[in-house]
Structures are given as C-alpha cells and as structure tokens.
Nucleic acid binder design. Sequence first.
DNA 1: ATTGACATCCAAAACGTTTTGGGGTATTAT
DNA 2: ATAATACCCCAAAACGTTTTGGATGTCAAT
Lengths: 338, 338
Amino acid sequence: MNITIRDVAKKLNLSITTVSRALDGYSDVAEETRQRVIETARQMGYAPNQAARQLRRKRADSIGYILPADRPRFSDPFFAEFVAGLGDEAAAHGLDLLVSSAPPNSQAEQRAYERWIQSRKVDGMVLNRLHLQDWRVQYLSEVGFPFVTLERSQDACDYPSVEVDGRRWFKVLVDHLAELGHRRVAYIGAGAELKIQADRLAGYQDSLQSHDLPYDAVLVTEGDLTSDGGFYAAKRLLALPQPPTAIACVDDMTALGVLHAAREHGRVVGKDLLVAGFDGMAGFEHTQPPLTTINQPVYQMARKLVQMLAAQIAGQVLVERHVQIEPVLEIRQSTVGK
Amino acid sequence: MNITIRDVAKKLNLSITTVSRALDGYSDVAEETRQRVIETARQMGYAPNQAARQLRRKRADSIGYILPADRPRFSDPFFAEFVAGLGDEAAAHGLDLLVSSAPPNSQAEQRAYERWIQSRKVDGMVLNRLHLQDWRVQYLSEVGFPFVTLERSQDACDYPSVEVDGRRWFKVLVDHLAELGHRRVAYIGAGAELKIQADRLAGYQDSLQSHDLPYDAVLVTEGDLTSDGGFYAAKRLLALPQPPTAIACVDDMTALGVLHAAREHGRVVGKDLLVAGFDGMAGFEHTQPPLTTINQPVYQMARKLVQMLAAQIAGQVLVERHVQIEPVLEIRQSTVGK
DNA sequence: ATTGACATCCAAAACGTTTTGGGGTATTAT
DNA sequence: ATAATACCCCAAAACGTTTTGGATGTCAAT
C-alpha cells in the first residue's frame, strides 16, 4: 500500500488539511510547521496520488499528442525531436505528455481524440500535420477544448498556432535552384489534403512565375513524406523524355529517397541533378551528398507550442497567438556540388 | 460541466450502481436494462471520468516511457517507430502511453521515474538503452513495480525483456566484412556503459578472433549514436597512417555520419571502404550508397514489450519472460559495391 | 404456506485529495 | 476589560467512480 497524506498527518499530529496546504504553499500555515511537514513528507516518501488530485482539482495536468502514423512500419526523425520538445516543455510546466498514434482521418483517430477529451484524461491537445479542412480543429474549437497547432488549417475558427511560412520559404528554396540556372525544376509533394503540401506547392509556383519559368504539370508529382515515396516519385521523373535537372522535395525524407533514385539513374547529385529538401532534420547534413534544405528549429517549435498551450490551459490570455518561426536556407552540396 | 454517471442514472430513473454495472458488463443487470443504459449513455455522450475511475480502481490504465534524450536537438528515427509501436499496442490493451524525456543517468531522469511511480500515474514502465548496471532496473525491481526492457542489463534481478542477441548478430555483420577479404576492420561504438556497446563490441571481437585477425585498439573508437559522432569518429579513423578498409558501426545513425566522412576523404564506399550499420531503420535503405545493416523489427519489438507489460500488470504469469528476436542481415551496396 | 433459488436492482462506503468556511489563541488597539 | 486583528489550524464536504453487501420481488419446489 502506498503512503497517503493521512499517514503524514497522523505522524505529525496535524490535520490532513494543514499538510495539504503546507505542501501547496499556502500562507496560512506557520513557517515552522511547513518545514516540519515538508521534511517528514520527504522522509516518508510521500507523493500525492495523482488520480485523487485530478479528480478534486478537475484537471489532468496532462496534454495529449496523437502521432499521425500512416503505417505500422513508420519512422520519421521529425517526431523524435518534436516529441522530445513537447515532453521537455511539458515537464517544465508540471504537465505530462500523453502520446498515442493513429492513421490520419481514421475512425481510430477520432475515437482517440474523443476518449481523451470526454474522459478528461488531458487538459489540452497538440496537433500537427494539419489538413486544409481539418476535422480536429473544427471539433476541438466547437467543444471549446484547448489546443495548439503546428501549421494552420483553412478553417474559419481562430486558434493559437506556431507556423513557418511554407509558401515563402519554399519559394526561397526553389529560387535558389532557379538562380543556379536550372529551368526544369520538378516538385515532389505529398497528399493534396495537407496544409504543408498546399503551401509548399504554392511556393514552388510562385518561384517559377518570378523566374518566368513555365509550369509543367508533368514535373509536379506526389510522394508520401517517406523516403520510399521520394524514391519512386524520382524514378518516374527521371524516366521522363525530358527529365528535370533539379528536384525540390516537400520534406527531407522524400529527398533522401530522391538521392537514391538519382544514383540508380547514374546522376551525380549536385552537378547533373540538384536535390533540395525541407525541414532540416538533424543528421541529414550527413546524407551523400549533404542535403540542401530549409532548416526549421523543430525542438524549439515544439517547446513554444507547449508554452502557449500551458498558458491557455492556465486561463491566461495569450499575447501572441500566431507565432511565425523563421527557418534558414541551408545550402549544401546536393545543390552546389563541389 | 461534463456529463456524469449520475446524469445518466437520473434520466433513466436508475441508480448509479446499475448504470455503472450495466456499462461494465456485469451479469446482474437485465439485458433489456443494459441496452437502454448503453443507448442513453451513448446519446448523452457520457464517458467515465478517468480520474475518478483510477482513484477507485487503483490503477492508472497507463504505461510510461522515458525517452533517453541526451541533448536538446535530438533526432533518432528509432524512436518514432518505437513509440508508434508502444502506442499502438498500448491502445489495443486499453492503456495510454505517457512519454517524457530525460538525459540518461541524470537527476531529472530519476525524478521523472519516481514521480510517475510514487504518484501512481502509471501502472508500468518500458525501458530501453539499458546500461550494464542500470539503476532503473535495480530501483524498479526493488520497489516491485512492473516493467519490461528492450535489451537486458547485467543486474542480478530477473525481469521480462525483449532482446536481440547483439553479440551474435554483430559477429554476423563483421563476419560479412571479413569474408569479403578485409583485414583491417574498424569499429565505431558508443558509451562504454551501454549494454548494446558491450554486446556489439564483444561480437566484433568474436569475429576478429574467428578470422584470425589481430585486435588493434587503434581501430576501436567511440561515437555517441548520432551521425555527428560517426562523422568525427570516421575522420579520425581515416586519418590514421594505416586506415581501416571497412568500418562496422554500432548503429545506423553512426553509419550515416561515416558515409559522409568517407566521401570527404574521397573514398568510394562499397569499394575502397566498406561501411555497415546496425538497427535497420526504415528509410536507411536510401542512403548513398544503401546501407548494409542488421535489420531489427523495431515496431514489432515495441508491441511485444507492451504485450508483456500488460500481461504483467494484469497479474498474469508470463509464459515467455525473455523473448529473443531474430533480425536479418541486410546486404546492400555499402559493403558489396556494384 | 413456507422455503430456496434466482434475477434485478440499489444505498452507502470507499478511493485520496483540495477547498470551504469557520474556530480557536495570542497580540494589539481602544 | 473588551474589541479587533492576525495568525494557525481543522472538520467536513466535494470530486465521480467502483464495489460491497444486501433488499426486493418472482417463481418453483416442498
């Protein structure tokens, strides 16, 4: 049996009220008593039962995040960094992080959200991989549940978010390719329902236009944010009668697959064929050749999200509801050879 | 205000007892009543308050995992797959997954474990990245708290685990290099306190011995399980007066860095220099050149762990307490060129 | 008519906290 | 001497479940 506040109170000949208030730092308990309480509690190894506390306080001291895992065998370095950021900042606010995984837009996803929210298992949710129209955003704002998002959907409601301007920065990336003199620049994207896809594709088009390059639908293809997806998309592109001389990828994982496909087709990446990614995953500066990318501070973004969520849960009014993060263009040998 | 069991009971003119027992599937409630209860509960959107349930039942219906994140900017594809596996299997058992992160062997790590366990926030823990002597193993078995581990420490106590025989399989990997005729095979490892390091180094030595190759301490160096670590370790190795012609790496991330270093030194990987990794991360078949590795089913291993943990929590006696997983040697171009 | 067995239901206790609304004592002001 | 004021402390209620130990009614067997 675990040790309760009652045990501590009994040992000290105090009421449980006083023990509770002493530990919670109320001012109506004598400083000397408080010290005795703290000391004995520590000695006895007392830790408040979370379930009881949550029941009474009506909050869970937890936040939730549901990993958008599309398949069983799923591995994306993005999530390790993201989850570490969420966890660290959550801990700093005395919150725990509850993680589950569900395929996007599935029954399972819906049930997972409803379960946590209705049963008050969490006080707030973190979303990412937003869709253009996202049922999660609609649902959560409808029931008035606190949440924050990485990226913004196109839903009408207002909610706190952290965002990189994907359109602007993808244009920067493609500008980089165009300014190196390339005129057949391809784009490998992701599912059309994703916000990042819409943004980054738009940025791609912006860049074409500003360099007077024609938009060629044949050069725009779809991956699935995995290296496999990038691999097969790139093979299709490179098998074209007029293949591209540069490929901009919606993310780094996709680009990794492209590097492989390029090699199979005997292209020297950085000379015959330029390849660029987006995200700036740690470790991807060591691809071969090192990958040019737009580097986002994923860990910091995750922390910022939790910070905003914690404030919202605490009922504070957020000064900045829409945080813009500025990534940096990381030019490496996959576009500038050597 | 959320809707409680009392609301449902009132609407049906039943006692909360009956509602509770109807929903929990007890046999002492009439089938017809049960249907009415289930139907109204669904209609009213009733979901039992988790805190109250946990308080009464004395379990949290949650398991915990603490990510061994050594640094702020930390990204390892291993963890995405591992966490997805934990989450999916946990959900299948009606359990939630609580995730935090802490630097191994830190104060913060210790506090994180104690907090969750003493406050009954979780019913069991999943550990990995075990140390040879692991305080977590000692602590948890001392207080009699359910846990399972990936890999096994050398502590005397008995506990359920899932494991790949790192020594045997690392030998298989190095055998592969030796059988290609290489006599100067280097090893890039990790911190000496880690179980995987001890195992894999031992496997490396086993292989040398069985091929009558001398052990040269200069060829054994330490990384830190990141691509950066691999990069710098490889640069040191390649700068030796008598550099190795093959490098076996403790994991895939390390190997990724080695590929980069090799390129900088003008080596053609797969011909001048063989490189091999360990783990079989999804996506790493697309490195350049594709990486030879020992492929572990990380997702499956994670699910197996949770399965065992859930059984242990439910008080069942485990039939298999020490599960051996058989990985496969994945031969790719980083060792056989093309 | 009584008993026993069975099928349904329920009141109340319990889980371990936090919060509410005072209740004593000493100290100071009148 | 009395009133007012701090200062500490506490009993009891509440949070929303699950579980315990019957209570009630029906029906068949005695």
